[in-house]
Design a protein around this nucleic acid. Sequence first.
DNA 1: CATATTTGACCGCT
DNA 2: AGCGGTCAAATATG
Length: 326
Amino acid sequence: MEGSSSDGSRYGGSGRCALVAELVQMQGMVRQLEAEMGTHGGGGGGGGGAAPMAAGADERCRALVSGLLSSIDRSISIARSCCTEAAAAGRLTQQAGAAPESPPSADGSAGSDLGADSRCRANAAGPCKKRKTLPKWSKQVKVRSVQDVGPLDDGFSWRKYGQKDILGAKYPRAYFRCTHRHTQGCHASKQVQRADGDPLLFDVVYHGDHTCAHGVRSAAAAIDGQAAASAEQKHQPTPPQEQNAVSVAFTSMAVVNASTSSPFVSPAMSDCQISYELGGGSMAGVRNVPDVELASKTNSSMGDDMEFMFSLDADFLDTYKYSSYF
DNA sequence: CATATTTGACCGCT
DNA sequence: AGCGGTCAAATATG
C-alpha cells in the first residue's frame, strides 16, 4: 500500500515527459534509418554506402522499420496522454502491467526491493543488515508462449537457485541468477512465476543488470539458459531446434505507466522476426508463434531516467537487442 | 567429474 | 509468526 504510493510519486510527470522525449528521439532515428534503407519508392536512392543486403533481409528490415515507426507513434501518443494523468498512472501500472489476477507477484517482488532500498537508507547511520542484494532496477515481463515449453529464452544464461511457493499464487516462483555470477561477478537475477490465470503466461521480474560479457554475446550458449522457469518442465527438455524456430512478438504495455523494457535478446534466431509494440496494440506478423507480452514495471532508484536503446546494426536481423532502463 | 537443479533450512523484514 | 528471498547439501544430468 505504502509502496505503491511512493511509486506513484516517483513516476511523476517529469519521467513521463522524458519518456515522450526519448520516444520522439527514437522516432527520428528510426526515420533516419528508414531513409537510409530507401524504404519508400522502389528504393533507388537511399542505401548509398550501406552494405549490400540480401533481398529477403532487406524486406524484413523494411517491415521491421515500418512496424517500429507505427509502434513508436502509438507509444508517443500513449505517453503523452499519460502525461496528463500522472496521478492515475501508478494504478494503471498495476492493471496494465500485471496479470489481471496476479497481484501478488507484481506487488511482492517489486515492493520488496523498494523496501530494501529505503530500509537501508533509513539505517544509514548503521550498517545495513539486509542481505547485499540491492538491484538498480527491476522489470516485470510477461512472457507468453503458445508452446507449453516454458517462457522463451531471453538470451542470458541463468542458474536456478531456489523456488518458493508464494502465498495466494497457484504456481511457485522460481529464482534465477546469472550463471556467470561467480566467474564474472554478474549480479543479474530474475524471478519467474506462472500467472495464476494462464499457465502459459509467465511473470518474469528482472533484478539488476548483466555485467557479464556472455549474456549478450553467446546467444547460442544461452539456449541452455532457457531452463528458466522450467521448474515444471524439467522432465521434458526442449530441443534447441524448437527455440531456433521460434519467433516472438513483444508487446510492451508498460508504457501506459512509465515505460517499458526488457533485455530480450533473441539468440540465434536468424530467421525469426521480432515485432514489438509499445502501448499494447496489435502486432505484426510473426512467423511462428508465440505471443509475448511484456509488461515492465519499475521501482528503482533510477525512476526518473529512462533510456531506450535499440541496437540496429548490420546484423540486427540475427540478433535484436532491445533494452531499456528506468 | 563438473555443472545444474531440487529442496529444506535459514535469514531478515513486516 | 508468517512471508519472501537466499543458501547450501543432496541429487540429477551430461
